[in-house]
Design a protein around this nucleic acid. Structure first.
Lengths: 228, 228
DNA sequence: GTGAATCTTTGCGCCGGCGCAAAGACAGGA
DNA sequence: TCCTGTCTTTGCGCCGGCGCAAAGATTCAC
């Protein structure tokens, strides 16, 4: 199947020697976040770029009056708020710690210096940005072209690939996601997600356990998500 | 109002001297496209990155069986298919010339050399990719949170800002966009777009003329697109 | 200028999925 | 242990907007 959790520290720092990595990390400020803590909020002036070291951040974008779009979950080795480096702008999303999370932050000036000293950094950032762009384009297309249930399946699979952990035959998404969050990720409502997961639970495709979602039959889900 | 057509050659080559620009351009291959010609097709192996010099490209992503997502129109100074540089992948979209269009192309190897010789290039590409990411995130959110008519308004305004030309009090989108294309851009159907534009035409907000859309009252459209 | 091909408009019926409401399940605190 | 707050499930009704169909408008080739 897919590789799980293999973003181990090589996204942003790929291609750099151990010494260079140490040098870069030394310039950063560590930030420790408790479960649910907000690292930055959409609309605040963007001053720092962050790298996740341990744990997981949830990036979400708000719409006027309520609705929310869950952009993605990011884990160790992934960078967020690159926009802060390039121009004086506002954070485009809100970043919340899913569990206890450790991040490193660099301010604009420092990051600019690092980027000109280590061109690999810029390159890695570009690489990452392009991957995300591709993913978002696909999600946009799916949002318009596919039925909700199919999209819920794709969402679960995406999250599973990024943050799944094998446990016997099953795959556990080992942080709690509420129905509401899955709905915000998929672009639907918590009611629809609930109904969908209930149906799949009856079919034996997934299981819920203490707030965590367990994918019992990934293959069935993949087939379902790709059926035309 | 917004600036129109001011992407004049400074997106990708920003921060470089006239000589450096000339040097970079010399390495590229010019490609001349007639109206409707396809520069590259989604799914083909991505070998070259292109810069639009004159005219306009339409970037669209296909879904199995019919549906299409019009990602964006790009004009002079804008780069497409950066993905080709970074990894051996497939083109994620299809690029079609809207009118007669002139582009410059660089292959992977050449572009890599240029990027390490002129770090500004990588930086400019990153900048551009991040802007597009932000825009797409907003569009995704809108697609789920807003009513169709509102989204059609936003689409028209976006295209207007990127490719509008003032003509008296009105703003002309000076290349032909069909109802189908506007629907693909917005994430709806040509029927709905047609109905919506008809209604706005009666209100005197827009006008259609020989395949071109003319925005008569941009302010009304802006208000409508932002109403909660 | 005429005919063919393409694009646009509009009437009409239907349905996916949204969202209220109310009940049920679960977790955490004292 | 019970109580309180939060999350989840499910029944039910409603409606935005999709999509067929057919007519009308416009463009293009020759």
């Amino acid at each position: 199947m897919e590789e799980n959790n293999n973003n181990t520290n090589n996204d942003f720092l790929r291609g750099l020697s151990r010494e260079e990595r140490a040098e870069i990390m030394k310039c950063g400020t560590a930030v420790d976040l408790k479960r649910g803590a907000v690292l930055f909020r959409q609309g605040e002036p963007a001053t720092r770029t962050f790298l996740v070291l341990e744990g997981r951040l949830k990036l979400a974008k708000l719409h006027e009056e309520g609705k929310e779009f869950l952009v993605r979950y990011i884990g160790p080795g992934e960078l967020t708020s690159m926009i802060a480096v390039l121009q004086n702008r506002e954070y485009p999303v809100t970043a919340t710690a899913v569990g206890a999370t450790l991040v490193a932050g660099w301010d604009r000036k420092r990051m600019m210096e690092l980027m000109s000293e280590y061109p690999e950094l810029t390159f890695n950032m570009l690489h990452h940005a392009l991957e995300r762009l591709e993913e978002l384009q696909s999600r946009y297309l799916e949002l318009h072209a596919e039925q909700v249930e199919q999209r819920v399946a794709r969402s679960l699979l995406r999250i599973m690939r990024q943050s799944g952990r094998k446990s016997g035959d099953e795959i556990v998404i080992d942080f709690p996601i509420s129905r509401q969050e899955l709905a915000d990720y998929t672009g639907t409502t918590l009611y629809t997600v609930s109904r969908t997961l209930s149906a799949w639970e009856k079919k034996g495709w997934v299981r819920s356990q203490s707030g965590r979602i367990i994918i019992v039959d990934p293959h069935a889900l993949v087939l379902f998500s790709e059926k035309i």
